[in-house]
């Protein structure tokens, strides 16, 4: 499998990264090199092999339902590029 300019533009949009048209072509080459490389995996027979879900051989521990966090608006907003009246502020969204 390999990607073309359109596919790269599509995934760049999915990833919300603006890629100028001029940069698409070089990216096609770079990404295809990587994809060619990883395609070696097709040589491996993985029939009846379970995908790894976690390297940790443990089950997930359930937390108690206690309120242990929150009530820290100043900390939450401390690094916000724009915050007003206790809200994060972003350019207007039209639904």
């Amino acid at each position: 499998m390999s990607v073309d300019k359109n596919t790269v533009a599509k995934i760049a949009h999915l990833a919300r990264i603006k890629v100028p048209d001029a940069s698409l072509e070089p990216l096609v080459g770079e990404l295809n090199n990587i994809l060619d490389f990883v395609e070696q995996l097709n040589e491996v027979n993985t029939d009846n092999v379970a995908p790894m879900t976690s390297v940790v051989a443990a089950t997930m521990v359930l937390r108690d339902d206690d309120i242990t966090a929150g009530d820290c608006r100043d900390e939450v907003l401390a690094n916000a590029p724009a915050a007003e009246h206790g809200f994060f502020a972003v350019p207007k969204v039209i639904e």
């Binding site: 339902d65 242990t68 966090a69 929150g70 009530d71 608006r73 900390e75 939450v76």
Partner: peptide, 24 residues
């Protein structure tokens, strides 16, 4: 539930904006 699915912040309805928000 008292707290959120993956964090310890409270779930109560109708609080001041961003006061029931953890770092998670």
């Amino acid at each position: 539930s008292q707290s959120k699915l993956f964090s310890g912040a409270a779930t109560a309805f109708g609080s001041e904006p961003n006061t029931q928000v953890s770092l998670v």
